[in-house]
């Protein structure tokens, strides 16, 4: 702001005012048509998103006996959750489930994408095969894998026994040690095609001339991937990881159907626990508080994650 004559200043203000009135209502009035167009969507969103969230937060401060009215109990729901050993056990399960599933699915999905991207005979077939787990519904997947892993008549145990490798069936889903790894395996099997597709889409946008430039510059295949492909895929990777993490954090079907959270709660994760609290135990107050805690955890994770991944990008703009 150098020296400005009063006239100039006035002029600027006048211009700004005419373009963008400070009062939001004036702006809305002037652009009423824009707001009218988005109103139906906003209206619907209010009822299906804003209202439920608000109501969940409201309920989280109440105890909600089946008989009788809701009773305000302040932060009691929250303190009882945070201080419960069970909450931390389930949090640990959830982290284990989410992190291992995401990392494995990401590695395998990316590898599959790199394979599926290459030109070779039968590529279409291979791509098709990779996609199979993805097109099977989660519920069907869960039941199929229960059969495969079943401790008494499972496919895996049966085949290994037929081959004489083991003499009694493997205990997988009924084992406190192996149930979670088995669920993760199924989850990875189910999810890697999604990551493959995302990465494949990304890979196809990697400019060919950059790869050629890197070849000329003496980069090995790995170095080409590391210096050209990977940086180019950064956006896709962030989105894919974020989606996968959220998907896994909210994954309900596999644990619920395959183990119901057992044995001894070793496969209970946040979302199954919240569901059980709300719709099995009808403890809506506690379940709401639990949801709010999860909401806060997930939002802050997403915030820091996105921030970390996009650090340094600002300068470029």
């Amino acid at each position: 702001m150098a020296v400005t004559t009063p006239q100039q200043a006035t002029g600027q203000v006048a211009i700004r005012a005419s373009r963008e009135p400070r009062n939001v209502f004036v702006r809305m009035y002037r652009q009423w048509a824009d707001y009218a167009y988005i109103f139906p969507a906003l209206f619907a969103m209010f009822f299906v998103i804003a209202y439920p969230i608000a109501y969940t937060i409201y309920l989280s401060f109440y105890s909600t006996p089946t008989a009788g009215d809701n009773v305000w109990n302040g932060l009691t729901n929250y303190t009882s959750i945070i201080t419960a050993e069970r909450f931390w056990m389930i949090t640990q399960n959830t982290m284990y489930w989410t992190i291992v599933s995401t990392i494995l699915a990401f590695i395998i999905g990316t590898g599959a994408a790199l394979i599926a991207q290459r030109e070779f005979i039968g590529r279409g077939l291979v791509r098709g095969i990779f996609l199979i787990p993805w097109v099977i519904s989660h519920v069907a997947t869960a039941y199929i894998w229960v059969w495969i892993f079943h401790s008494d008549y499972g496919l895996v145990s049966g085949m290994l026994m037929d081959l004489g490798i083991i003499s009694s069936p493997l205990v997988i889903l009924d084992s406190t040690t192996w149930a979670m790894p088995a669920l993760i395996l199924v989850n990875v099997w189910k999810d890697f095609p999604f990551i493959m597709i995302m990465m494949l889409a990304g890979l196809q946008t990697v400019p060919d001339h950059l790869i050629r430039a890197a070849k000329m510059d003496g980069a090995s295949t790995w170095q080409q991937f590391r210096h050209v492909t990977l940086p180019h895929l950064k956006g896709v990777i962030i989105i894919t990881l974020l989606l996968t993490i959220v998907m896994n954090l909210n994954h309900f079907t596999l644990p619920w159907i395959m183990t119901g959270g057992g044995p001894a709660s070793t496969t209970h994760i946040w979302i199954t626990e919240v569901y059980a609290l709300a719709f099995r135990s009808l403890r809506f107050g506690i379940a709401s508080a639990f949801s709010v805690v999860l909401f806060i955890i997930m939002m802050s994770m997403a915030y820091f994650y996105v921030k970390a991944m996009t650090a340094g990008d600002d300068r470029r703009r």
Binding site: A213, K215, M216, A219, P231
Partner: peptide, 20 residues
């Protein structure tokens, strides 16, 4: 391989590494 030929190339659209 290209890297073993001791040659350099300038591309039509420059092919600069955008992240570097």
């Amino acid at each position: 391989d290209p890297k073993d030929r001791d040659i350099a190339m300038v591309f039509q659209n420059y092919a600069l590494y955008p992240t570097k």
